[in-house]
Design a protein around this nucleic acid. Structure first.
Lengths: 146, 146
DNA sequence: TCAAAGTTTGGTAGGTATCTAAATTTTTCT
DNA sequence: AGAAAAATTTAGATACCTACCAAACTTTGA
């Protein structure tokens, strides 16, 4: 919970987790494979590891769903993505480009760095690719750091 | 020359190249190994590959030196590093932190993205960790794109 | 129930980085 | 010069990451 560094998952796995979060409920392996254009077995392997790390519940042949921890982590990943995209858009990139480039670089940004940039930007509500959710203790936005 | 993408070298190799550039002349394997706290053999292997890619001249048992191409590439790497650090410093990080964090994320920034951010920042002369050199055609700063 | 669809297992492959130990070359010192 | 010491390279391993395929397996739905 409080121990997020932002590098727990490889970038591909993080992408899978974000995708699962955005799909909501139970997600099938094949669906993910199709979306990312990789073989289903590649996804299964990644999913198994993500499950082992505690972010998802994997019921073979039925799909995966987020654990509470996974949901929290996914929210962080999405917030980070949107913050990075926002910063890029403020440096001359068109919205779509900003979102695309953000996907390439976001995995390098630690939780701490993300939170500090968030603060520095004044906890913006909107990015170029969606709303930015600022939950409770996300980055001191609501002063409950005690 | 014109084909820099920014991802030609892995981040470790890029660090070595920057180091070699900053040391000037001929650099010894052991010196690099000590600086990065890795075994000399690790450096030798990396150096061999960097040399194969044409960025350095490696004379076994005597050290390495930059080729003209390597020098140009190193200048890009350093400019990119300083631009990224500058941006981070403008988002609430102290100079030293900005430099340290920049080292972690800079390898993700393409040449194109770097140039655009450079333009957007108005081709700044100074960053938090040194001057930023804007050579001839670096990013359209001197209008000689033809 | 049985075939098609979907999923997992196990093996292969390429990339990065690292280390230890042994062999080689260079340097230093007597 | 010659030998010991230091520096460097090579070889052989390990360890991760990503990705893929073929074959075996499970589920689903007609």
């Amino acid at each position: 919970m409080q121990g997020i560094t932002g590098q727990e998952l490889s970038s591909k796995k993080a992408e899978y987790l974000k995708y699962i979060h955005m799909q909501g409920d139970v997600v099938k392996t094949t669906e993910i494979a199709a979306c990312f254009s990789v073989a289903p077995s590649t996804v299964t392997k990644a999913l198994t590891e993500i499950a082992k790390a505690g972010y998802i519940e994997h019921t073979p042949y039925h799909g995966v769903s987020l654990t509470p921890h996974g949901a929290e982590y996914a929210r962080f990943l999405i917030r980070r993505h949107r913050l990075v995209a926002l910063i890029l858009s403020r440096h001359g990139l068109e919205p779509e480009e900003a979102c695309r480039e953000a996907r390439k670089i976001e995995q390098c940004f630690s939780k701490d760095l993300t939170d500090r940039m968030c603060t520095s930007l004044g906890h913006p509500m909107m990015s170029v690719c969606g709303e930015i959710e600022h939950d409770h203790r996300c980055c001191g936005s609501h002063g409950d750091r005690s």
